[in-house]
């Protein structure tokens, strides 16, 4: 009986590792492809030697005829994503606090408006949003990529629900001590929501980082492109240079992966709240 159980557990682990391999394989393939000699990329699964040629070629601007600003694109992605994510996080905490801990007339109305908006199909807004951005003169600027993505309804919704679970007594006690709302947010609310904040931050950052359609529409100046857009544009033209394309993919994947690994300690706890 014990023997058969052990055998079953062993089989389960074999299965678990096999699945893990399938999930991680594309990442491995990408890294190996970026480091392989150019005549072995997409020809051999395991390269015979490793080289940084693809990365060097990429950082020098790629093809000589029309050099592309790959590093600049990486910087653009970082700037746009960080600014946008920070704004989404700060506004979500503010609005979430207002909707859960400040009683004011019209609060329920705002709550309902947010719910309605969350389920409203955003695709209808795409074309007019583009027109608004162009009207404001933001076409080809960072503002076009940051401001229309400065508020996130899902994040507001999550924070509102989470703050509701923080007891009102804590806030009342702080008010007795003369603390204002901003102090309460900074000293009580913010430290208490660390685990959910890491998950919300991760999701917002990741979704912003991999955005393609919007960033593609509002920018056509090569210097302003995000890495994701530049990579999508070069997909066809760089068809003959798979090695550098893998190197750029690694560049595109690494920041999110690093963030995720840094935050994975809080992952399960935070996800449990989000999936509820």
């Amino acid at each position: 009986m014990v023997g058969s159980k052990r055998w079953k557990v062993g089989l389960l682990y074999v299965l678990a590792f096999a699945v893990l391999f399938v999930m991680v394989f594309p990442y491995l393939y990408m890294v190996l492809g970026s480091l392989a000699p150019w005549d072995e990329v997409d020809r051999k699964l395991i390269p015979s030697s490793l080289t940084l040629r693809s990365y060097e070629w990429l950082f020098q601007g790629g093809e000589d005829v029309v050099p592309r600003p790959w590093l600049r694109a990486f910087f653009n992605s970082l700037l746009v994503t960080s600014a946008s994510t920070l704004l989404m996080l700060v506004t979500a905490v503010m609005v979430g606090y207002a909707l859960s801990k400040v009683t004011f007339k019209g609060r329920q109305w705002v709550n309902n408006a947010i719910l309605f908006q969350m389920f409203y199909p955003s695709i209808i807004l795409l074309i007019p949003l583009f027109l608004i951005v162009r009207y404001f003169g933001w076409y080809n600027t960072y503002w076009a990529m940051i401001l229309p993505k400065a508020v996130n309804l899902w994040a507001i919704f999550m924070y509102t629900n989470f703050f509701r679970s923080i007891p009102d007594e804590l806030i009342e006690a702080a008010k007795m001590d003369g603390a204002g709302h901003l102090t309460i947010i900074r000293r009580i609310i913010w430290p208490m929501s660390r685990s959910i904040t890491t998950i919300i931050f991760l999701f917002l950052f990741m979704e912003r980082w991999v955005e393609l359609l919007w960033d593609m529409l509002v920018v056509n100046n090569e210097k302003m492109l995000t890495l994701n857009v530049l990579l999508a544009q070069m997909f066809g033209p760089y068809g003959g240079y798979p090695g550098p394309m893998y190197a750029a993919s690694v560049l595109l994947t690494l920041p999110i992966l690093i963030l995720f690994i840094l935050f994975s300690k809080n992952f399960k706890e935070g996800m449990q709240f989000i999936l509820k």
Partner: peptide
């Protein structure tokens, strides 16, 4: 982990 991948990068792979 796959959820973190950009659709562009996975298309390249």
């Amino acid at each position: 982990l796959p959820y973190l991948a950009s659709g562009v990068a996975s298309a390249i792979v």
